[in-house]
Structures are given as structure tokens and as C-alpha cells.
Amino acid sequence: MFPTPMLKCNSPSVFLQVTFASFIMSFGLCIQVGIAYPEFQQFSEKNSGRTTNCASCHENATGPAGNGSGQIGSLTIEEFAKLNEARTAFEPGKDVDSPILNRFGDLLIKKLGKRKVLEDRKEPAKLASDYGFQSDIDQDGIPDAQEFLDGTDPQNQHHGDAWRLFVVNINRYAPHIIAAAIGVLLLDWGFARMIGGFMAIKRARKKRST
């Protein structure tokens, strides 16, 4: 009844006991829920070596089942209507506003259609390419699909793969960084000249004393 997580990974560095434990946890958190698709989360974690949770696509970090906020147990009648409408989005192109999904989840269903999402469960990596690398909900410069592959939060502007963010932001903030560099260069040139001045005074004193 409970699947034993199989870990096959080329870089042992990232898969340690803690991560191992996280797998068990995440299986536990999502597998309970018949309607959620933990395959994608498992893939994201395996691909990135980072721990993730259901909040990648769902409103609630523990998935859609339960009675917390954004979970099925706490929906109002209007929200249920929305949920049922969202469930009919089998083909792509339908605007989705599901109360249990976050914006990334909604967009996934809209772009792929539910049928395709269900199909991709067998091959979770395809979800990223099917979704495409254009949309960037949090505007941090890393496309949502890439954030899914990286195991980072697609809805948080201040969360992403550190190196990718560095590359994006160094371009984004280039004027600021260049201006700061100019300021620092001027400052350092001034300091160097000051040292030069004191050196000259030292030489002048030496000449005088001889």
C-alpha cells in the first residue's frame, strides 16, 4: 500500500538521509490524496535535489485534501462551483480559476488541458516542455517551467536557482552595479592618490633632512 521510494541519482551529494526522509514525507503527504498528482513533485525533487511540497501547484502546502485553507474540506458553495468548472477543462485554452490550485497550477491546466496533465504523469519531465518556457509568473527572470525543474518556488520573486538568479539579475541591475563600480573605482583611485601624496610628503621630508 505504501510505495518504497526508489532513489537512483548520479550525484549522491544531494541525496542524503534528510532528503530521503523528505521523500517518505512527501509520498505520505500527497499519496493520500487520490486526486493530486505526486509524480510531478517527486520528479521535481529528483531532478533538482531540493525538497519541495504541494505548494508548487496547489494553494495548500499539504495538497488539496483536508480542511485547511485552499483544501477541499473548507470550500464554500461558490468555490465548489469553481472547482467543478475547473475540472471540466480537459482541453487546453480554458481559463481556470480553481480554489485548490495556485496560479501556476491554474496556468498549467489552462495551457495543457487536464487530459495532457494526466498523460504527463507517466513522464513528468514532459510537463515542463509542454508548458513552455515563456510564462514567468513571479517575474524573477526564470520561467515557471524551469522553476519546476529546479524545484524552486514559481510564485516567489525572491526564490530561484541561485546561479540562474545571479545571471538574470546581473543583467537586470547592470546599470546599478556599473554605477556602484564606477563609484568604488573613483573612491579607490582617490585613496591610492592619497597614499601617493603621503608618499611624496615622506620623500620631501627625507630630502629636507638629508
Binding site: A179, G183, L186, G190, F191, A192, R193, M194, G196, G197
Partner: peptide
């Protein structure tokens, strides 16, 4: 020169 550099640098920063 040093004073100019430091002033300008501080100004930019």
C-alpha cells in the same frame, strides 16, 4: 586628485 576621486566616488555612491 585624491580628494577629487574620494568626493566623486562618495558622491556617486
Amino acid at each position: 586628485k585624491g580628494a577629487a576621486g574620494i568626493t566623486l566616488g562618495c558622491g556617486v555612491l
